[in-house]
């Protein structure tokens, strides 16, 4: 078994999470044949599995991705950036020329693509392992699964692992930074928690620590399947139902932070398109 790791526009966090599997890493270290972060190897050889981290932002990265597909028997979208666009995808709110102009103030030698795309826009993907980053536990399980040919899916939302219980209340404001009650559902306390629309498998570490889910594993099967269901409609609906409050989100883009350019979220009711349209017309999205 030969494993290669390729990095596009991302933060290397997924590779660090792979290193954080500690013992597992030492176990598979001799199988990793290409990983510029930890090994000297200039050329990607033919591999059984190639893990691709990061979204596609420049023409150079597109070439690297296409080469990776040619050399890989199985290509894995490793992390939310490559699976769903991730945080890198948020750069798509503005036109590439505008990004370069506002940040650098002059032209550079390199060309950006129009959006920061998830990799399945250009190549066929065999597995998606979303997460920002996927927890070391998920990564070990996935690698084990690949090695024995049986990969376990996580088709339930974060709520299923969270353990907090819903209490029907009446709130009059959204909470942001206060310390929550440790036993009660964050939504019913008035935090904007994406747990109910987000794919589980992470053991709900954030909500268990009193931090609302940010949606880093992307949408659940159910949200993907339903053309009329979307993060905002679902969250708005739930907060209204269990906490009796009509939320006005003043920063819509951050709620979609990890799924900006994924075509799985290309829905009629989604407000992603509205955000992008606004940003590209020169407004503040």
């Amino acid at each position: 078994m030969k494993i290669g790791i390729v990095k596009l526009a991302s933060c290397s966090g997924c590779q660090i999470a792979l290193l954080d599997t500690h013992e597992k890493l030492l176990e598979i270290a001799d199988k990793v044949v290409y990983a510029p972060l930890i090994k000297d190897a200039r050329e990607l050889p033919d591999c059984d599995v190639v893990l691709v981290e990061g979204a596609v932002r420049t023409e150079h990265e597109l070439e690297v991705l296409k080469r990776a597909r040619e050399r890989a028997k199985k290509l894995v979208a490793f992390g939310s950036c490559s699976a769903l666009g991730g945080i890198s995808g948020m750069g798509s709110i503005y036109k590439p020329e505008k990004l370069i102009e506002d940040i650098y103030g002059r032209d550079l030698d390199y060309k950006l693509l129009d959006f920061a795309y998830p990799i399945d826009r250009f190549v066929e993907v065999d597995y998606y392992l979303p997460g920002c980053p996927p927890t070391p536990e998920l990564i070990s399980k996935f690698i084990d699964g690949i090695l024995n040919g049986r990969v376990e899916r996580h088709d339930y939302p974060v709520c299923a692992e969270c353990g907090r219980l819903v209490v029907h209340t009446k709130i009059d404001n959204i909470k942001k930074t206060e310390l929550p009650d440790p036993k009660v559902c964050l939504l019913s306390q008035g935090y904007v928690c994406l747990g109910s629309v987000t794919r589980g498998g992470c053991r709900a570490i954030c909500t268990k620590a009193g931090v609302p889910c940010r949606g880093c594993r992307g949408p659940t099967d159910k949200v993907m399947v339903m053309p009329c269901k979307d993060y905002l409609t679902e969250l708005h609906d739930r907060i209204e139902r269990i906490a009796g409050f009509d939320v006005k989100f003043n920063d819509v883009a951050s709620i979609y932070a990890f799924v900006f350019t994924s075509d799985m979220m290309d829905k009629l009711v989604s407000r992603i398109k509205e955000v992008i349209r606004k940003g590209r017309r020169g407004g503040r999205a």
């Binding site: 526009a9 420049t58 990265e61 750069g91 990004l99 940010r214 003043n250 920063d251």
Partner: peptide, 22 residues
Amino acid sequence: VLEFRGFEKFLEGRSFEFVPMI
């Protein structure tokens, strides 16, 4: 250096509670 994402630009418009997360 051959990579780019554009945080300085897309942070504009974000609400403060999401900024450390982003």
